[in-house]
């Protein structure tokens, strides 16, 4: 019993002690969803430990690739967790071993070189290198000019036209819908609508002879309404 305990302490010490620095620790990172080391190099008999301190995403580590030099590596598969528990593997057989977090299998990949020469990572072609969006242009959420001004109706003139018609001219200072109404005794007899801006005119036809009140009001695109403009005309 005592001997077993001593052995366990020794094993623990081997992991923690810098004197045994050939053992390697690989850390899984949420940022970039990658390992802090994409390649580690050890001697046969040494151990690699994968850790996931403080991660918010589900990770783990597993052996990747077919027919590894050590068949045990093929079934190496640590449990998933947030954060995942540490996992270790002692590599006895020289060879090249790939590891992966299967949750993030396109970015969280790496290689353990056991007693073999490290192959420098190949320079990736442009279609595999990230083109990161690092835009930080200042953005103004709103630059608005709200239209709360009433449209202005000016130069209103009314004259008789031939055929029981009334010709109304006016000027409006912004794009508006102008409604012209002919009323008599409080009742609306005729209406006409004109859209536009600047000087406009409209002819209201078919009014019977008599004296009419003429009312104009402009409504702009925003829905602001001008004060009512009034005048009178006698149709003959």
């Amino acid at each position: 019993m005592k001997r077993a305990l001593a052995g366990a302490v020794l094993a623990f010490g081997a992991l923690a002690s810098p004197a045994w620095a050939e053992n390697q620790v690989v850390t899984g990172l949420d940022v970039g969803l990658k390992w802090d080391k994409e390649a580690v190099s050890i001697q046969p008999g040494e151990t690699v430990t994968w850790t996931f301190p403080g991660t918010q995403q589900a990770h783990h580590v597993a052996g990747n690739g077919s027919e590894p030099a050590d068949p045990a590596w093929a079934s190496f598969n640590s449990p998933l967790g947030v954060p995942a528990p540490d996992a270790s593997f002692t590599f006895a057989t020289p060879g090249v071993y790939r590891y992966v977090c299967t949750v993030h299998s396109s970015s969280m990949v790496g290689t353990v070189y056991v007693g073999t020469a490290v192959t420098p990572p190949a320079l990736l072609p442009p279609n595999q290198q990230p083109f990161e969006n690092q835009d930080a242009s200042p953005v103004t959420l709103e630059k608005v000019d709200e239209d709360k001004a009433k449209p202005r109706l000016t130069s209103v003139s009314v004259r008789r036209a031939s055929g029981h018609a009334v010709r109304v001219r006016f000027r409006v200072d912004e794009e508006s819908t102008v409604q012209v109404r002919l009323t008599r005794g409080g009742r609306t007899i005729k209406t006409a609508t004109v859209e536009g801006t600047g000087t406009r005119s409209v002819t209201v036809r078919g009014a019977r002879p008599g004296r009419y009140r003429v009312e104009l009001r402009a409504t702009d695109i925003a829905g602001n309404r001008s004060p009512l403009k009034r005048t009178t005309i006698t149709v003959r």
Binding site: L33, Q57, T102, V103, H104, S105, S106, S107, P125, P126, N127, Q128, Q129, P130, F131
Partner: peptide, 12 residues
């Protein structure tokens, strides 16, 4: 990616 292609990375 740097050549303008879409970059996809697995995140199950």
């Amino acid at each position: 990616n740097k050549d303008g292609s879409f970059r996809y990375s697995e995140n199950v």
